[in-house]
Nucleic acid binder design. Sequence first.
DNA 1: ATTAAATGTTAGGTTATCTGACATGAACTT
DNA 2: AAGTTCATGTCAGATAACCTAACATTTAAT
Lengths: 126, 126
Amino acid sequence: MSQQLRRSMPLLPISIVMQLTELSARQIRYYEDHELIHPARTDGNRRMFSLIDVDTLLEIKDLLEQGINIAGIKKVFDIKNQPILSIEKPQMTDSELRQLLRLEMQQSGRFQKASLRQGDLSRFYH
Amino acid sequence: MSQQLRRSMPLLPISIVMQLTELSARQIRYYEDHELIHPARTDGNRRMFSLIDVDTLLEIKDLLEQGINIAGIKKVFDIKNQPILSIEKPQMTDSELRQLLRLEMQQSGRFQKASLRQGDLSRFYH
DNA sequence: ATTAAATGTTAGGTTATCTGACATGAACTT
DNA sequence: AAGTTCATGTCAGATAACCTAACATTTAAT
């Protein structure tokens, strides 16, 4: 079983995610409503979160604390999730590319925090 | 945060542990009744399991499948959890020592299964 | 044929989570 | 100042998931 697969297994109930992230249930559900996370559901409709979800939530929390709003965070995620630049068929508009570069430059300079590429949950497991 | 601390964090509800171990809730609770595991509890009295708990359950399952009964498994765990042999004050009786050596010898020969020292959950996370 | 060990099953009670609605505080806009 | 919007708080009612305790079943040993 690959590392990524294990980290994407939905193992954690919302109560535990609340503890790990210090977010309220309301906040977590709100971020889901706005499609920043997509936790799995049990047959009985309970949310179950993966370690990746927790990482994402910590990143959302960090970006919000930087004053970026939900729409901005969604944009950041959209851009980050685009496939690597291909010569055949550029997926990013010039404007998005400039945006990303600006974001990465801002981000990489922030005190001891990890860069956008690195989830924050590494503190908790492994 | 240390590796061991993180692995001992109670994160998982019983439903997930059932999936990871393919044990029934009845079995898991029975093993707790017999003090083979000691899962944490929420304020509301729900069991919460750590990765170490899951490892232990997989080991219990394996030993049961080898025909060892609960009492035997408890003994195995007791012996394994004794501090390393000290010259000052031997913690193990001669008979226990012989027992352990016999067990380790049996164990180490079993097909592809991990030895007693190695939890089985490594398949799932990390 | 009994007994004991491990597990299944059921019942009744409690907790954790769900959705949806309304409330609030802070930051903007007009 | 009054009104918006965004992010979050809070509450109510529903139900899924979990709890304990008791009794039932299966298997193996005596």
